[in-house]
């Protein structure tokens, strides 16, 4: 599904991704862990086409298409979803209006008619239940005045609405208490299907108790330096990242 080869990217002239390769198949859950500043969020920004970053080398294909040539909105319409580490507030734009525009843009891309208001509201109700989201939130402006936990739930709600092929969850667990964590993880698990995949970026192994990964990768200094099964996450939890740093920097 997703094939990243030797990806190099910089921001303001500073190289952050330094030859990153990763391949993700349908049905798989990949966890990416790594110390602060390793480039995890940069990877999610680059995959989704954030114009602040420049790709200098490498290829990314998504379902056979050259991802790097697509505009950010088309990457979304192709089925890539990012749950932002820091969701943005958009005052004045109601969640309902925002989501309806997004859903209908996705449908237009697939040559489908816009959704009727009643179908849309029904779908919205269903998906809200999935993440146990408060009714009130859907009537407020996008993320405005939401608590940290509400913002993260709102990300998963949007993910459910857009039904992506590949979801990238960037530290969706940070700032969540244990109940919220369970709700979010539950939502993600319910959306899992054999034909979609996710990349779960996290700091902590505890999320992986709920969302069980098929693969765990360590991102350090702009590259994937170690990959393994879910036991790697436990090892990292126990031993920290220093031994990895030593392994890499020692070479």
């Amino acid at each position: 599904m997703l094939e990243i080869k030797n990806l190099h990217a910089n921001i303001n002239g500073k190289e952050i991704l330094k030859g990153l390769s990763l391949s993700v198949n349908a049905g798989e859950v990949h966890a990416i862990m790594g110390p602060n500043g390793a480039g995890k969020s940069t990877l999610s920004s680059v995959l989704t086409g954030n114009p602040a970053f420049t790709v200098t080398e490498g290829d990314v294909t998504f379902n056979g298409k050259n991802l790097l040539e697509l505009a950010p909105e088309d990457r979304s319409r192709e089925g890539i979803f990012l749950s932002f580490q820091y969701p943005v507030e958009i005052p004045g734009v109601s969640m309902v209006n925002f989501m309806r525009t997004a859903v209908n843009e996705h449908r237009k891309y697939k040559n489908l008619e816009p959704m009727s208001a009643s179908d849309f509201l029904r779908m919205q109700r269903e998906k809200k239940e999935l993440v146990e989201m408060d009714n009130k939130l859907a009537n407020r402006s996008v993320n405005e005045g939401f608590s940290g936990g509400e913002k993260k739930r709102n990300e998963i709600f949007q993910m459910a609405m857009l039904d992506p092929k590949l979801s990238i969850l960037d530290e969706t667990d940070s700032g969540l208490d244990i109940d919220a964590l369970r709700i979010v993880a539950n939502g993600v698990n319910k959306l899992k299907r054999p034909d979609n995949a996710s990349i779960v970026i996290t700091h902590y192994q505890r999320l992986l108790d709920y969302i069980v990964p098929d693969f765990v990768h360590v991102l350090y200094d702009g590259r994937i330096v170690k990959s393994g099964g879910k036991e790697l996450a436990l090892e990292l939890e126990e031993r920290g990242y220093d031994w990895i740093k030593q392994e890499v920097d020692g070479k």
Binding site: E73, R75, S76, R77, V88, T101, A102
Partner: peptide, 18 residues
Amino acid sequence: QIFYCNQRGISTEDAVGL
């Protein structure tokens, strides 16, 4: 804000409109 909208499939023009 614009990129957040883009990431949900909304073009920049439409995002500004919203």
